[in-house]
């Protein structure tokens, strides 16, 4: 009983802490958002970009802001920045049809191919990383609760133990689908932000050119070199490019 009260107290403390922290500094966001939208509608793309950019630098992490910023970048002719922010928005809501449509459109306009993914990665992209984590945690808690109830309620032990297999399987699936997202930490995605990017066969100036990468293309890091080179994968091919030509998608 005491343990239960303690756990509840800790959860309440944590949730109130998070809520109060979230409330700080968000007061101006609605007004800024409206101003940015008005500037966009009036064709003042520079103003719109500036306001959305300021919101993000002030800690705003809403997918709507990333998406709208990407739209403003696209209309302003900055395709790499547009792709970068669409992709950031996509990380949070991979199923959003608007984000997917605009990302495809921007990639197409940039002459870039979408990132190559396998079946497992496509299955993982059905939910965002946060959603998979939440699903895994929920499955974990439900599974533990089922086992505890099975131990305590003898007549229902067998049924409850069998039932706990469902959240167990759900947790394993969630963790499995979380894996490609976690891999983005180890092998992050980058967007080519400058023109003239050419992937070379080796991490040396003057190495044989392998293939050209258009600005706005999404590439995946494979390896890094201490001299400012990065091995990347684009359209199923690997090559080395200078790190100052690309910008990281994930924060």
């Amino acid at each position: 009983m005491k343990t239960g009260i303690a756990i509840t107290a800790v959860f309440v403390l944590l949730s109130t802490g998070v809520a109060s922290a979230a409330a700080e500094g968000t007061a101006d966001f609605p007004q800024q958002f409206i101003k940015a939208q008005e500037a966009y509608d009036a064709g003042n793309l520079t103003g719109s970009l500036s306001i959305y950019g300021s919101m993000i630098s002030n800690g705003c992490h809403n997918v709507e802001v990333y998406y709208n910023l990407a739209n403003a970048c696209f209309k302003n002719g900055d395709l790499p920045e547009a792709v970068l922010n669409y992709r950031r928005a996509w990380y949070q809501q991979p199923r959003d049809p608007d984000i997917n449509a605009n990302l495809r459109f921007a990639l197409n306009a940039a002459g870039a191919v979408p990132p190559v993914t396998n079946l497992f990665e496509r299955a993982s992209a059905v939910r965002s990383m946060k959603e998979w984590i939440e699903a895994a945690i929920a499955a974990y808690l439900i599974g533990i609760l089922s086992v505890i109830l099975a131990l305590l309620i003898r007549p229902a032990k067998s049924v409850l133990l069998k039932t706990s297999l469902i959240p167990g399987a759900a947790m394993l699936i969630s963790l499995g689908c979380l894996w490609p997202w976690m891999q983005l930490e180890t092998y992050p995605e980058f967007v080519v932000v400058r023109s003239g990017a050419t992937a070379l066969f080796g991490p040396v100036e003057g190495s044989t050119a392998h293939y050209k990468i258009p600005p706005g293309a999404i590439v995946r890091q494979r390896d890094i070199d201490s001299k400012g080179w990065m091995e990347i994968e684009y359209d199923g091919k690997t090559g080395w490019i200078k790190r100052d030509l690309i910008s990281r998608v994930s924060p």
């Binding site: 966001f29 705003c60 809403n62």
Partner: peptide, 12 residues
């Protein structure tokens, strides 16, 4: 553009 979100998320 997307409309204003109901809840503001900050990246802390």
């Amino acid at each position: 553009l997307k409309s204003m979100p109901k809840r503001w998320i900050t990246a802390n």
